[in-house]
Design a protein around this nucleic acid. Sequence first.
DNA 1: AATAATCGTTTGTATGATAAATGACGCCAA
DNA 2: TTGGCGTCATTTATCATACAAACGATTATT
Lengths: 260, 260
Amino acid sequence: MKPHKSASKALRGSSKTPQKSPRSSLHRSVAQDIGARILNGEFAPGTLLPNEAEWCKSFGVSRTAVREAIKMLMGKGLIISRPRIGSRVQPREQWNLLDRDVLAWYCAAAKQSHFLAHMQQVREILEPETAALAAANHTAEQMRAIEDAYEEMAAAKTLAAWNDADVRFHFAILQAAGNELLVPLGLVIESALGSMFNYTARQKGDVGRTLPGHARILSAIRARRPNAARLAVRKLLGDTSRIVGQVIQAAGKKQRVVRA
Amino acid sequence: MKPHKSASKALRGSSKTPQKSPRSSLHRSVAQDIGARILNGEFAPGTLLPNEAEWCKSFGVSRTAVREAIKMLMGKGLIISRPRIGSRVQPREQWNLLDRDVLAWYCAAAKQSHFLAHMQQVREILEPETAALAAANHTAEQMRAIEDAYEEMAAAKTLAAWNDADVRFHFAILQAAGNELLVPLGLVIESALGSMFNYTARQKGDVGRTLPGHARILSAIRARRPNAARLAVRKLLGDTSRIVGQVIQAAGKKQRVVRA
DNA sequence: AATAATCGTTTGTATGATAAATGACGCCAA
DNA sequence: TTGGCGTCATTTATCATACAAACGATTATT
């Protein structure tokens, strides 16, 4: 019996697209599925997962693929497996929530609006200080990267191009801050926001409206004025925050996040 | 040939200690070794790693174990592997630096003092705001957890007991902030700091000296005064910052971190 | 010379077997 | 009855081997 092909196709999304990066492999798909179901609450922390043989049957794949998937999830702190016991879902404190995949699964799992607010909160804490650090520490080369991104943003015709440049703008500031920990942190936040938000809330009108805000940030950093940079970012975030608030309200949730 | 036992023993650190958590398994050890070497700079980003067969030989383990180790590293964004090409070290932006293991490997890799400063910087950004959020959002139960930790801290006789309570104190504040993203973030920072710093810089004399600072934080949170909490944390961090600064200086590095 | 077919290397997946770990159970003794 | 001890069964851990798939390089073909 060789379910090689068929089982594979059943799992992988569109086998039509032979993407550059190997986003589709069996173990990856299996890990994706199990991980999403854990974050989804289907398997609560402390729960004993089905054993490997059962996963094999339910996915129609070999034990090799299942084990490799489990190893990936172990690496993300979601589960722990021991002989004779099986694989158990770890307590939430162990979860590597800052992992791109885990965060994506978490975003996809229901509580979006409530989570979106938390993410925005973290942004409001991190980004002003990041900009301030960038103002204090940036090198000439890093400054140029920020300016380039701004130019592209200003010249962007399509919404997609604008978003692309916007992401580069923020990333350039992150790097200019000169703190190696802030970079992955910012990346995670941005990517998660992008994946759930999809930046669709930004209407075309917003583009022009937020450009001056970006300009203020740019010049504050260039002038090496940390406090001005901090304030400029706060101001820009204030607008975004309003939009996020509207999205949350539109989602019909009354969940409120208290701002300190 | 059954190199099962021997090869295993050669890799795992002390096979004398059958720890509760399965910290020792072949794939884990292999992942540990390769991961540390990547973070160590032995395999730079973009480098093509030895292929699986060579890892098997050099570690004396089967391909299964090597592959599972590679899957864990893939899950952490350190490497990517493709058929016919092999496994390549990902660019640093892809690394999941916020992963406990990755961070530990990174800490172990040389640049400690410089990294310690960056970590301290992130603490100075996050912790005041976390305390402010806790002041605004805490529930009665969360408040009790904070108070309990404080009591234990005050009653602690040994340095170890004090550190233990201290960690719980900070963790309780993290949870009281009511932001699910801040919890893992804080955990990562604390654990990394703990692992490299080992809290040995805190002499016994410091214990008594920082207790009032903790008390101020506690009462500010209890009184639901976010701004007071923020200031209290900043003050306490100022002391720690001095200690860290001394450690860095003691390390003989002149590396300076510009504070915005 | 440009294009197509072929080949070889490397990872991906499957399969089956054995080893090790450990909870559960039953046995024996105090 | 109860507490300790050995056995057993289940599950993961590891090994070994084989084949499939992907894809760069090479060679053949037009």
